[in-house]
Simulated assay, not measured.
Amino acid sequence: MKTLVVGIGNPNFKDDGVGLKIVEELQGVVDTVSLLNISFQIIDSILGYDKVIIVDGVKSGTEPGSIVEFSSDYWANIYASGTHNLSIFEIIRIGYKLFPEEMPKEIKIIGVEVEDVETLSRECSSKVVAAIPEAVARIKEYLNIQHVQNAL
């Protein structure tokens, strides 16, 4: 089964880089790709994979560092209201309409609640940093990846 983890974020705006930091932890363990924003590039990145996890910072109103998960049961019913700023949910739905045979059979979105995405910094806030190991563990569990020792 071909699996992929997609990290989304801007590494220069504090907590907005959390998706990229999570992907860094999984490099060499599973296929990964890092994207700087939500765009149709997501579709290009995930075509041909069976199972995909997308990780990003979110603002859902929970405590900073909280991990939220969105399965297709949730996002299948969320619609974007504009045409210039499509949500990740809308982009994935478009992918399934355009490429139904090539899109992944399973997609899960994992978000880490952010605290600060406006400060110019390459370091995440302490609560968000503390959530990274748990997010990585959840991804490994979901993908059924056993602990891999880093040979470095």
Rank of each mutant, 00 (worst) to 15 (best):
F13L: 14
F89E: 15
T83M: 01
R122S: 11
L86G: 04
S72E: 11
V18K: 04
I139Y: 14
S39F: 05
E90W: 07
Q146T: 06
P64Y: 01
N10H: 03
G61S: 03
G95N: 07
Q149I: 14
I109E: 13
I91F: 11
E63N: 10
G57R: 03
V128F: 10
K59L: 14
Q149A: 14
I67L: 06
G48L: 13
A151L: 13
I22A: 02
A131M: 13
I38K: 07
S45M: 05
H84G: 14
V29F: 11
Y49E: 02
P11S: 12
L143S: 11
I94W: 14
I67T: 05
A80I: 05
S66A: 08
N10C: 06
E134P: 04
V33A: 13
S71C: 05
I107L: 13
E115A: 04
F40T: 02
N150D: 14
I91W: 09
I42W: 08
V5I: 06
G28Y: 04
I91L: 10
M103N: 02
T119V: 00
S121A: 14
E134K: 14
K51D: 03
D56E: 06
S72G: 01
K105F: 00
I88V: 08
V29P: 12
K2S: 04
F99D: 03
D73M: 08
S121D: 14
N12S: 04
D116V: 00
S121F: 12
V55N: 03
V52M: 06
R93W: 00
N37C: 12
G28Q: 07
V114N: 10
A76P: 08
S60F: 00
D73E: 15
E123I: 12
E69V: 15
N77Y: 14
V33Y: 15
K14D: 09
Y79E: 10
V117K: 06
G19H: 00
E113A: 03
V128E: 15
D16V: 09
I78R: 11
V68M: 05
E90D: 11
L36E: 06
A130N: 11
V55F: 08
Q41G: 07
P100E: 01
E113P: 07
